[in-house]
Each structure stands twice: as C-alpha cells, then as structure tokens.
Amino acid sequence: MQAGLTVQAARENLAVLRDFISARLRADGVPTSISDDVVQAVDEAACNIITHGYQSQPGSIRLELVCDGGTITARLTDQAPLFDPTQLPPAKKDRPPEERAAGGMGVLLMRAMVDSISYRVTDDGNNELTLQKRYQT
C-alpha cells in the first residue's frame, strides 16, 4: 500500500492526518494497536513541524505512507526553515509534570511509538522526517 496526502500546516489538520493514516492502515489489515502507534508518532511529528518548524506561519506538510511486508513507513516533508526534531531532548518521565516541556513530551512519545526516526535535508532543501514501525504480519 502506498498513499499520500498534503495538508496546510495548521493544528486543525492534525485530525485529518490521523484519520487518513488510520483509514489506510485499517484497509491494509494492520492491527489497530500498531496503527494507533503510527498515528501518535505522526501527529506529534506534524505538530512539531507546525509549532517549531513553521512557527504557526502558513505552509504545507506532505505525508507519504507506505505499508510493505510488515514495515510501515511514514515520511513527512515540509518547507519550513530547517529543523531536526530528532535533536530535541525528550522529556524525563520521572520529573514532576510542571517541570516538563510539552515539546519534550511529544519527542518522548514519538520515539516510544515507532522503531526508528531519521531526519535529512532533501536535495531541494526541504525537511524530511521518516518514521518506521515494524510488525508481525
């Protein structure tokens, strides 16, 4: 399965991305517990792009979703100023809630829900974040 979607970088479109991923992975027979994790990781990543990348300025986010042989790949591309979310420190879960930054909790969740996350700058100078999750078919 291969599918793609482009949305405006706005918080109201996070639900659009989540619904798209859920529907496509469900149609491909992926277990709900697995697709929930991918949905969570992409939502956190897209929210980081909107908040830290575009800093709530107008822009777009492209999602490419591939499910092949027990590996789900979600690739997010955007034209925001270069920003590598894999360099953000995750929140420490043993710290009191008031001492945690929301961005750090997003990174913590993103890393926990998928098997690998990688960032690169594309040849045309865009941000590209790739999240992968493997599961038993």
Partner: peptide
C-alpha cells in the same frame, strides 16, 4: 486519542 498537548492539559 490524546497527544502530548492533551497530557500537558492533564498536567496543568
């Protein structure tokens, strides 16, 4: 579904 922002709301 709850994102890190929802967790932040619970934390608040």
């Amino acid at each position: 579904y709850i994102s890190s922002y929802g967790v932040r709301a619970l934390s608040q």
